[in-house]
């Protein structure tokens, strides 16, 4: 039997401690997850959402994509000599529920910008920041190019309406989303498109 001296035992202990530390320090890049105890998981943002009949992500996506496809096919855009400049105005929510219509126009603008067939000017949501930056730049350079800011070819407006009906067993909601491209000089409506959505919820339960 091998008899270990006091120094040998100490060295072995030190070696074990060092190995443990090294394993802990070099245990790889990790899993990239911090998971709690609940059942939270990521879904696909583009999946159809039918939790209830209220306005939802699928309605935003369908509307924005439909509108973008329609406008890109219209000769006002597809046959324009140069990419026209558009300013987003308000899409008014005339329904009884809260709908953030900026969600529609933001997604619409992203789709349209990717096509590179139109240009967008700052709208109400970021006009304040743009004006601050302009004033700063103007004060620094003494240049006044105010015309560029107001040089809008078209403005985009719209409405969201709904009709909601329900009884004890079912609920039905009809959404009508209309968008219009208007020439601000003449007031002429150059393009318009409508998207209609019907959602029904059946509350009946099988059983007794």
């Amino acid at each position: 039997m091998i008899k270990l001296t006091k120094h040998t035992r100490f060295a072995a202990l030190l070696l074990c401690a060092a190995a443990t530390l090294m394993l802990a320090a070099c245990s790889g890049p990790g899993t990239g997850r911090e998971q709690g105890r609940g059942n939270t998981y990521y879904g696909n943002a583009e999946d159809v959402e039918t939790v209830n009949s209220a306005w939802g992500s699928t309605d935003i996506q369908m509307t924005a994509e439909r509108m973008a496809q329609s406008m890109l096919a219209d000769p006002v855009i597809s046959e324009a000599a140069a990419a026209p400049k558009i300013r987003l105005r308000e899409v008014r929510n005339l329904t009884s529920e809260h709908i953030d219509t900026k969600g529609i126009t933001d997604m619409f603008r992203v789709q349209m910008m990717r096509s590179r067939k139109v240009r967008f000017l700052a709208d109400n949501t970021n006009m304040g920041e743009v004006m601050e930056e302009r004033e700063f730049t103007e004060s620094m350079t003494r240049r006044a190019e105010n015309k560029l800011m107001s040089d809008t070819d078209y403005i985009l407006t719209g409405t969201v309406r709904s009709i909601r009906k329900q009884d004890a067993d079912r609920a039905d909601v009809y959404y009508q989303i209309t968008m219009e491209l208007v020439d601000p000089q003449s007031g002429e409506i150059l393009w318009t498109e409508q998207n209609q959505i019907r959602k029904s919820t059946d509350n009946r339960r099988i059983g007794w």
């Binding site: 583009e46 999946d47 159809v48 039918t50 699928t58 369908m62 994509e65 990717r114």
Partner: peptide, 8 residues
Amino acid sequence: LEQTSWRP
């Protein structure tokens, strides 16, 4: 290149 969202 791109894909539409799922359409119900």
